[in-house]
């Protein structure tokens, strides 16, 4: 390696170390997205805090899912910036996005497991695609991950044979395969019964603690939001209405926040209990 490339690698490493000290993992600045004449995101600005569970809430149609699609660049925003560890990913080409996307893992609402592969192959997929590990090492890693998430017995089952909760666990195992820094959950408890929802909440918190990931959770399940959330951002009709810790959120004097909390049907006391 030449002296110049050594210096450049050292500089990149130093920048990465420096970035890791920044408490803000993801900066979203004036993000805008329209479909035709219909503006969905109207200049959204907020921060995602490193190593915490960041929850984005909002009513159906408020633009939550559209926003998460921009965050991971499934779609290109019309304007604004998404800055990950100091790098703006909004203007990157599809080719340049490949390394940037490896910082993210995503757990889809319906899990989106590959239905032509069994659980083992789903989790091994990323390791086979992005690493040069031998099959023996891949097997070790996959089984360890499945065991940590309590689904090792389902390794050779097909996704269609799994329950909703198990699918979610496998989806988390798959998303964690390359040890991403940011894990995005799109409505993780929607459509699940209360007991499974609680299990998924525990899983989100346990994953954050164990792997030190920054979680971004899109949800409108208020019980779940207050159980796992460290930082809550409220999206109202494509704009950020409020943002803060759960305690600050409950104490908000915003009429729209109050309406949303009231409409959720979960009392503030219960939400505080959820925190406790």
């Amino acid at each position: 390696m030449s002296a110049a490339s050594e210096a450049s690698a050292a500089a990149a490493q130093a920048a990465a170390v420096e970035a890791e000290k920044d408490p803000i993992h993801l900066r979203i600045r004036d993000l805008r997205k329209s479909y035709g004449e219909h503006e969905i995101l109207k200049g959204v600005t907020f921060d995602v805090l490193r190593g915490l569970n960041n929850v984005i809430i909002g009513a159906s149609g408020s633009g939550k899912t559209v926003m998460v699609r921009q965050l991971i660049r499934l779609e290109k925003p019309n304007a604004g910036q998404i800055i990950v560890d100091g790098q703006d990913i909004t203007s990157l080409s599809d080719v340049d996005l490949v390394p940037a996307r490896r910082k993210f893992g995503m757990v889809f609402q319906m899990s989106a497991l590959f239905d032509s592969m069994d659980v083992y192959d789903n989790v091994a997929f990323l390791l086979r695609e992005h690493t040069k590990l031998r099959e023996r090492d891949i097997r070790e890693k996959v089984m360890a991950r499945l065991k940590a998430l309590g689904v090792e017995h389902a390794a050779h089952k097909m996704p269609a044979e799994l329950s909703g909760g198990m699918k979610k666990r496998v989806a988390v195992a798959r998303a964690l395969a390359l040890e991403p820094k940011i894990l995005i959950y799109d409505e993780p408890t929607t459509g699940l019964d209360p007991i499974t929802s609680r299990t998924v909440d525990d899983l989100i918190e346990q994953t954050r603690e164990t792997y030190g990931v920054t979680s971004v959770i899109i949800s409108h399940d208020m019980a779940s939001v207050f159980r796992v959330g460290h930082h809550i951002t409220y999206l109202y009709k494509g704009s950020i209405e409020a943002s803060g810790t759960p305690e600050e959120f409950l104490a908000s004097d915003s009429v729209r926040v109050a309406e949303f909390l009231e409409a959720s049907g979960v009392s503030k006391d219960l939400m505080r209990e959820g925190r406790a």
Binding site: Y35, G36, E37, H38, E39, I40, K42, G43, T45, F46, S60, G61, S62, G63, T65, V66, R69, Y236, K237, G238, S239, I240, E241, A242, S243, G244, T245, E248, F249, A251, S252, S254, R256
Partner: peptide, 20 residues
């Protein structure tokens, strides 16, 4: 609490399906 002021509404509603 970091509260962001509501912004002027430019579209009548955002309750539309996400573009496919």
């Amino acid at each position: 609490m970091a509260e962001v002021a509501p912004q002027p509404v430019k579209a009548p509603s955002t309750d539309a399906p996400i573009a496919a």
